[in-house]
Design a protein around this nucleic acid. Structure first.
Lengths: 372, 372
DNA sequence: TTGTATGCGTTATCAC
DNA sequence: GTGATAACGCATACAA
């Protein structure tokens, strides 16, 4: 023990000898020499379930600790052809849904000895750089959460045998695994709930047009409403951009026609900022004057200032499923990709009010005085 | 071109041949063979500033594209002893300050061909696992943003020549580089501002006790107030935990003595949730009944529902500085660690009101009726 | 400039 | 169970 410490402390030139710091990285050969065994024995001592006697393993471990030896995973991966590193492409981290997702994903993967290599993909970025890096590092798999990654990237990686797992995103390409919530069903639940609460003039604030999340939520919402008599739906694009909420709010209540009684936003972030715009810029009350619903159930949705009604994504189950998909495809390269859908649930909070259709149409829409 | 495609498409067994998928990973030797050059020539063709003729390089590049060859960075790092991978230990990602920080850090590092390997460090976790992994992967450096990492970890890595960079965190250990805002100065600015606005009964909601951020902010706040006559400061611990805000609020306004006129929270997340508790549980108005100030200037602080006055962290400058520190220490191992302090600025919003000391003491504190 | 030979640190394949 | 030896894919010192 003491020996180990002194070995570690007494490395040459403790201060700033610029240029060449010759610190000794102990290798398995060094350990073998000290323990008086072969280098292969050292390797086996650090390999789970390898064929080695307990006595010898103990000797090796002790020598290793003395030298501060740790097996070099990089060198190991060169021959095992598995790095234990999984790429993660993320877009907007200002949405807590994604930051929570990657935190939990990383946590669960670490438990299974995998780690995430982060790739930030700016909106509209050329994803070719990402492709290159993923290949160059020989990553075990790539997880895509970004909405802005071209789908041909997935195809290219598939060709090279690198599994691709999509989270909160789907694609027609069946070569990629995916985990997503049942957006269409969730949105239809929102629609039914709003109708049941007596709302008739509805609005949908869309996310980025060509994303699977937006397409599915929009479809679920509109289809569920199509069969209900007397319901109108205003469609407006929000692009998952919280900074567009004010203009969205103004467009919804532009004074020409009566504003909506209830608004469904394609995600919570837009819903929260829309609530702010409605309340503090248009001087409308939520839910008395207008109801608001989101999707995701991010933490801020539960804040007292918002009390946002929303459809939750089962984030823990989604992460668990993703981990299974990853491990499955990495450990058995022949396994086929799978697409998984999980259902969340409607979380009813105070941002949705009740309408009485008989009297609501006139009293519901007060003077929508705009302000700065 | 067409040849390249057909090569890529025609790899054996396109479907699920379980078990052994024998896909051909082209190596530099393969490329060399096709291009009719030596393997080292291929290596040189992909090495910036290597000594090779343009003609030969062109031949190599073309052959490489035909085969879909990409240099294996893992194998390369075995020789260069640099992986281009930097460890990032993160704690609580539900705080947007950190999610924003790591996004920008990743972005900037990618521009310089570095990537971040994510390590989630659960609160109070044993950081030994982290230590092991960082060493095992031979990471170029480790960035610590988590508040919960023991400082002996830094020392251990330092011993092995792995640079450690702390962000939003400091330590006595001068072996680690660090970037942090001038917490003490910032907090003193908050104190001076509150006094100037006429507040006299103040309160400090502390973060986790032994963290450098909390220690410094607390010290700055209290020292600046120590010299001001007639000022009282109530101290209460919040542990950077948003779920404790309700009990914090109740303790501050427990009815025995007059509640504070202004509250400084050690970070924005606590300030926001405290505002909620004050408004919706204690039925107090902010800022009319009580003022609230935070620290960080996270995005939600600007939301209309909160309009939180706060002291900003210069996050872009902090990231830039961190990148410099990292690159500097990685590229020249002899360079000495540096500690950097950056100043933010007070961001005044509506969560702080003005008191008139002459009449404030009685009228300022209405019936603090508690509720559910 | 170019090719040959060697080594990076490890696991895998053999014989024993 | 154990030890030699050959890969893994690449960069580099050296000779040409």
């Amino acid at each position: 023990m003491q020996t180990a410490q002194s070995v570690l402390v007494h490395f040459p030139c403790a201060n700033d000898c610029s240029g060449s710091v010759s610190r000794p990285e102990p290798t398995s050969t060094d350990v073998a020499q000290l323990a008086g065994v072969s280098q292969s024995a050292v390797s086996r001592a650090f390999t789970e379930g390898a064929s080695i006697s307990e006595a010898k393993r103990a000797r090796v471990i002790e020598a290793a600790e003395q030298l501060g030896y740790r097996p070099n995973l990089i060198a190991r991966s060169l021959i095992t052809r598995r790095t234990g590193i999984i790429g993660l492409a993320v877009g907007d981290l200002s949405n807590p849904f994604y930051s929570q997702l990657i935190y939990k994903l990383s946590e669960k993967l670490q438990q299974r000895n995998f780690h995430l290599l982060l790739f930030t993909v700016p909106d509209r970025a050329n994803s070719d750089d990402l492709l290159e890096d993923v290949i160059n590092y020989r990553l075990d798999a790539l997880v895509l959460t970004s909405t802005e990654v071209s789908s041909h990237l997935g195809a290219r990686l598939q060709e090279r045998g690198i599994p691709v797992v999509l989270i909160n995103r789907t694609t027609e390409d069946t070569a990629s695994s995916s985990v997503a919530s049942d957006n269409e069903f969730g949105a239809s639940e929102v629609a039914r709930f709003l109708v049941k609460q007596g709302h008739r003039r509805l609005a949908y604030v869309a996310g980025i047009q060509n994303t699977s999340t937006n397409i599915e939520r929009e479809r679920g919402f509109l289809r569920a409403l199509a069969s209900v008599a007397g319901v109108t739906v205003q469609h407006i694009s929000g692009d998952y951009d919280v900074h567009k909420s004010l203009s969205v709010a103004r467009e919804l209540f532009d004074g020409e026609n009566a504003g909506p009684e209830a608004i469904f936003c394609a995600n919570d972030m837009m819903a929260l900022s829309l609530m702010d715009a409605l309340r503090y810029n248009l001087n409308l009350r939520v839910p008395e004057d207008v109801s608001v619903v989101g999707y995701d159930n991010i933490e801020p949705a539960a804040f007292s200032a918002y009390q946002l009604t929303t459809y939750s994504q089962p984030i823990d189950e989604m992460v668990d499923a993703a981990v299974e998909l990853i491990v499955e495809r990495v450990s058995s390269p022949g396994s086929a990709p799978r697409q998984i859908r999980l259902r969340g649930e409607l979380v009813v909070r105070a941002s949705v009010g009740v309408r009485h259709p008989s009297s609501a149409d006139t009293s519901a829409h007060p003077s929508s005085a705009a302000s700065a």
